[in-house]
Computed example of a mutant assay.
Amino acid sequence: MEDIQIIEDLSNQINRKLKQVRKVNWLIKGYQLNDLGQVTHLNIAKCNLKGHWPPALFKLKHLEFLDIQENRLESIPESISGLETVTCLDIRNNELKELPGQMAELPHLIKLYLGNNAFTVVPEIIGECKRLELIDFTDNMLTGGLEHILNSNSITNVYLRNNQLKELPFHLIQDHQLKELNIMENAIESIPDDMAAVEKLWI
């Protein structure tokens, strides 16, 4: 099925006409095509999905960027594994508490934005995402599970601002492992004086 036909099906499923735009970002809704007429970027934020992931979405076999913010999503379906080419997922401002194991089956996932959801613990699957470099848990309710981030061989940018963290396993951070670490607005009681292993640290 051609991507344009899939977009038409997707528009019907979300009850909103999707428009082709020159550049998709966090502010502009619609879809972007490459030179082959394949959908590579899609923004369906604030589409009143009421927790429902439209099936047509998972037929987009060339999708690289997906913004699906503010849709009252409570879970991520196993069919997320079908988005094999996605590099950036923005699922902020929803109602997620956990991630499916299929997240580790996304071979090209580099950036994962999960801010302003309902996570209380960092899911173990985070450490199994082989190419993940950026993870954002800003504005959640995290109290633990940070070892799953710090045990990763690929994650370099970590955003944990405004959670409920009282401690962080700093001893797991390897030299030159992290480019950025934001732990502002938490209740972390003890932070080592020497944090040279982190290039940019916000506390």
Rank of each mutant, 00 (worst) to 15 (best):
E147Q: 14
I173H: 06
L49D: 09
C47Q: 14
Y159N: 04
L27D: 15
P55L: 11
A45F: 00
I110H: 12
A118G: 03
W202T: 07
D35K: 15
G30H: 09
T143M: 01
L96K: 01
T85M: 04
S75V: 02
K111L: 10
L73K: 09
S152C: 04
R72T: 14
V39Q: 08
Y113P: 00
L181P: 01
K23Y: 08
N182K: 02
E84Q: 12
D35T: 13
Q102D: 06
C129E: 06
P55V: 12
A196E: 11
N15S: 14
E2H: 12
L150I: 02
D136P: 13
K23I: 04
Q174I: 04
E180R: 05
I183D: 03
L150V: 06
L172G: 07
K179E: 05
D175K: 11
L168Q: 03
N94D: 13
S152A: 04
T40P: 07
N151R: 09
P169C: 05
K166R: 11
V122C: 01
N48K: 15
Q177T: 07
F65K: 10
T138W: 01
N140Y: 04
L27S: 08
L27G: 14
E78Y: 04
D175N: 09
A104F: 01
A56E: 12
V39C: 05
H62Q: 09
P100L: 00
